[in-house]
Amino acid sequence: MTGVFLSRQPVLNGQSRAIATRLTLHAGGVMDAYAAAQTLAALTDVWPDGERIFFINCDGFPLAAAVRDWAVPANAVLELGSADLLGPGGAECVGTLQAVQPALCLKADAQVGTALACGLQYRFLALDARHMTPAGLGALAAQLQLHGIVIALNVFDRDGFMACLDAGINAVASWFFKQPSALTVKKALNPGQAQIVRVLNLVRKNADVKEVEAALKQDVALSYKLLRYINSAGFGLSCEIQSFRHAVTILGYDKLNKWLSLLLVTASKDPMAPALMHAALTRARLMESLGHGLIDPQEYDNLFITGAFSMLDVLLGVSMETVLESMSLPEAICDALLGQGGLYAPFLDLACTSEGEDGAAIAELAGQLGLSAESFNRAQLQALAFADAMAQ
């Protein structure tokens, strides 16, 4: 592995919204403070503004040492383990953190009591939810809440998520929601979803503006959502779009198709829809950004749509085959979504792999596309900022 690659994980609140992001640093060999600091400092100009928190995880390495060479953003939180504070070099680590005073998250373990007495202030405490009973979760959460906001790690399913919330835990860092719920699986799109697909197909077929407008007017909420997305901060237009006809004039059908695609992504009734939509939007912008300079510019929007649609089976509660049967999509998009390879598949594979913990796999897939660690990391942060802007 050449360079330090970042993977990402959402942090969800009780309303299933991604309120923060957990970034993990992966290096091929032993990572030192300089490599960690340089990786993070290289992202300064694309670091997302705002209140959304970014937890920085680097297991096995005392990340605190990197703060000497990295101006920690106000919305970044450094994760620490008891070993960082109590093991060799612990006193130096504590001294550095006391001097710089970044926001901290202490990961609870058997030595958490001793670590809490080191003289540092913690904004967050993280507990490992694996193998814990509901009673155990509640007891530990109550103890940790005396020292900061409690989040849970290693939650692998919806039942575990609910158990954490019932235990009084404030938020959960996990991708568990990408697995479809057995309660939401159905055989066909509902009427609202089918109407969005109808409008999308009309736009893809370059139907007359009046015909598309008529289809939109059959669903007032659909028209409102479309204009809301087009006028969002994530789109970055210099003027406000006031009607569908105005949107066609300003954007043209090709760009409009991209934004109509977002409506389908937002049509989910799944309880985890807010988290799923944020993840889909992040994938969409990440794939689009990674494609710049690697494929024909006319393909960029299709990369975006591929990423946005990559979670439609979970979002809409139907199989991917069922969704695609009703849509007029390019073959390359369908191939990627069905796992059949094609031009867009390597970008989708990389976007999905960067949601895991296999740094070597991320590096390998990025290398196959000729992407450096820095360019990939920058694209991830920009994609997260885009998803945040769209979710506002």
Rank of each mutant, 00 (worst) to 15 (best):
Q111D: 14
C105R: 00
D49V: 09
Q38L: 02
Q38H: 09
C118A: 03
V100M: 13
V30E: 15
Q218R: 13
F5S: 10
P180I: 02
V209S: 13
G168E: 01
R283N: 08
A345P: 11
F304K: 01
A391R: 13
L294M: 02
S174N: 00
R17E: 14
Q380G: 12
F5N: 11
M132V: 01
A152M: 09
V199D: 01
Y229I: 14
A126C: 02
A83M: 07
I149R: 14
L153I: 03
V4Q: 11
I19V: 15
A103R: 14
L63M: 05
M162T: 11
R283L: 06
A66I: 05
V197G: 07
F386M: 13
A332H: 13
L381V: 08
D358S: 09
A279C: 09
N170W: 11
D254T: 14
R52T: 11
C58A: 15
L290E: 12
I151S: 03
S319H: 12
G87F: 07
K187G: 10
Q382R: 15
V155M: 08
F386T: 09
L303T: 07
D388H: 06
H26A: 07
H131Y: 03
L43E: 07
N154W: 04
G370C: 06
L226G: 01
S82K: 07
A20M: 13
R8M: 08
C334H: 04
G14V: 12
A389H: 07
M162I: 14
S16D: 14
T44W: 08
A110N: 03
D349R: 15
L256W: 08
S82R: 05
A379D: 10
K186E: 06
F156C: 04
A76F: 05
